[in-house]
């Protein structure tokens, strides 16, 4: 029973400070879809916001979220100038399918692979999907963990606020 009380105490304390990741995007090496090394410090969008979305080919909520965003991407980009960057956390088992999957889906996101989980760990991502909004100055300003239907509307609302600043 004491342990349950402690667990709820932890929940309360964590919730009080549930602000999500803040600060600049950590600089680590990821890979392009053709396997070349690429530093996350080069992520840029000319002072406009960036959305970073962690996903995997085996993750159904991730795919549902990226499908839902894809339907709106052109309109969002026109309104806010946003660029969307996807980070696949597929390991060696499914990594070769990532590029095929993206092309078949006709997603137009800028896409990278994180097979050694370096970027996933640096961004403190425990579960996929996990989405971040980076403002025009390169600061992480919004985080969202998991996906339920309609979360893309929440992302859009947050994106509009970031774009107006």
């Amino acid at each position: 029973m004491k342990k349950i009380i402690i667990a709820f105490f932890l929940f309360a304390s964590i919730h009080a400070f549930a602000q999500g990741l803040k600060g600049k995007v950590p600089a680590v090496q990821v890979k392009t879809l053709d396997g070349s090394a690429f530093s996350t410090s080069k992520f840029s969008n000319n002072g406009k916001p960036i959305i970073i979305d962690f996903w995997a080919t085996w993750c159904r909520p991730c795919i549902a979220e990226l499908d839902a965003i894809s339907d709106n991407y052109a309109a969002w980009a026109k309104e806010t100038g946003v660029k969307i960057i996807t980070i696949s956390v597929d390991d060696a088992r499914t990594m070769a399918k990532v590029a095929l999957f993206i092309k078949q889906k006709a997603w137009t996101y800028e896409s990278y692979l994180d097979p050694n989980q370096d970027f996933q760990h640096a961004m403190q991502v425990a579960n996929c999907p996990c989405v971040f909004i980076i403002d025009g100055s390169g600061q992480i300003v919004w985080t969202h963990n998991s996906y339920m239907e309609g979360d893309e509307d929440k992302l859009y609302d947050a994106l509009k606020k970031v774009a107006k600043k």
């Binding site: 402690i6 105490f9 932890l10 400070f17 602000q19 990741l21 600049k24 961004m123 403190q124 425990a126």
Partner: peptide, 25 residues
Amino acid sequence: LGGLFFCCSAISNAQVIGEGQLHGS
């Protein structure tokens, strides 16, 4: 452990320390 989590959360309000940054989960 509870204290550690509490500290982690508290620090989250001051993640920029000097020129450095603190992240956690």
